[in-house]
Design a protein around this nucleic acid. Structure first.
Lengths: 210, 210
DNA sequence: GTCTATAGATTGATAGAC
DNA sequence: GTCTATCAATCTATAGAC
């Protein structure tokens, strides 16, 4: 890591260790040790451990969520232009696909997406709050669009089905290696294409259930 | 809490605080302070913080999982006896219903079930390992029975759909108050009946998707 | 069984030399 | 920008009096 800046070294190492062991079980000493930089460098470059976490989310999630938001709106606009009802599968794809493709785009983004999958279910406020700040506007948009696509559903039913959807997606994003409970000799492929093609039919059927 | 034994006071307070703030963000000082007992009492009665957590899981999960296992086997036996295929909805109900009913059976079990929902997705090994020790046999049984009920599904597809199912269920179990992202003025009811009637159609449709 | 007191380890953050 | 050294707070676990 000698050619990279100290700041970038810290970012890369931190997002890997946060994803593997969680924010609170990763000490600044472990991060700076593995990154090969000085302990004090974190506070010099970022200000605090929390600010380091915020910088990681900011760096990845702002551009990624902009794409997801645009994709969602494109589905709605297209349906209005053609005067056709929206397909739930298209909505889900707009929401899920950018994330999983981003995950497969490099070895480092893989760690970040696992971190995102954890964040919603973190027991501690610190991580969850930072994450929800980024997700909330997108979640509301998704809810509104799904409400439009499934107008016959009770609001409460849609709410619970959306919660199921979010739970399933974040669980899949979180799965990395040791968390698998694989029965017998199954070694499921985990590339973006496979996951997308598995997730969308499941969730579409669930959301459209009678 | 004067009438209860010190041991039971610790158990009750610990499962509440573990559920609300997570295992690692709950210190023995907070537990003993709120329980009104001495700090050293935890180590006297349980041996260690980890052993306290194990005792909590043991206490609730052994009888609960025995019921779930019996229910699952009853669905399979009934189908064999009548020589009829199993219904996915019946399988899911056997798996989900005892847990949510147990949750509503008292104000204390509610905390424990929220703790269970967190445990699968804990970033730290300690909690996850203890929980998986209890879940694993039941998870394998569920997988085998679903394989029998959905024989046309590829093993890999069934695997991913089961993961989605587990993710959705644990997410719903984990939801308590502040974790909700409720759009507009929706205040969804959270009693066991409602959750069961919301979860089962969603998951059945997802698992049976083409 | 219950208590006080404390050991022993780890953490995030910072002061100050270079 | 980078380093060493250290502070101050937190934690689990335990020893020993009662």
């Amino acid at each position: 890591m000698a050619e990279k800046s100290t700041r970038q070294c810290i970012l890369d190492t931190a997002e890997k260790l946060f994803a593997l062991h969680g924010y609170h079980h990763t000490s600044l000493r472990k991060i700076t040790g593995e990154a090969g930089v000085n302990l004090a460098a974190v506070n010099y470059h970022f200000g605090s451990k929390k600010a380091l976490l915020e910088a990681i989310f900011e760096y990845h999630l702002v551009p990624l969520n902009r794409i997801r938001q645009e994709n969602l709106k494109a589905v709605r606009d297209r349906s209005r232009r053609l005067n056709q009802p929206m397909e739930v599968a298209d909505i889900l794809r707009a929401f899920i696909e950018p994330t999983l493709r981003y995950r497969d785009s490099s070895s480092k983004t893989r760690y970040f997406i696992a971190l995102v999958g954890q964040s919603m279910t973190e027991t501690d406020d610190t991580v969850r709050r930072i994450f929800l700040r980024h997700l909330r506007p997108l979640g509301f948009l998704l809810y509104e669009i799904l409400k439009e696509a499934l107008p016959h559903l009770e609001p409460e039913t849609l709410y619970w089905r959306l919660q199921c959807t979010v739970g399933a997606i974040s669980h899949i994003m979180r799965l990395t290696g040791d968390m698998h409970i694989t029965p017998e000799g199954i070694h499921p492929s985990q590339d973006a294409e496979t996951l997308i093609e598995q997730l969308i039919p499941f969730l579409t059927a669930g959301l459209e259930a009678p």
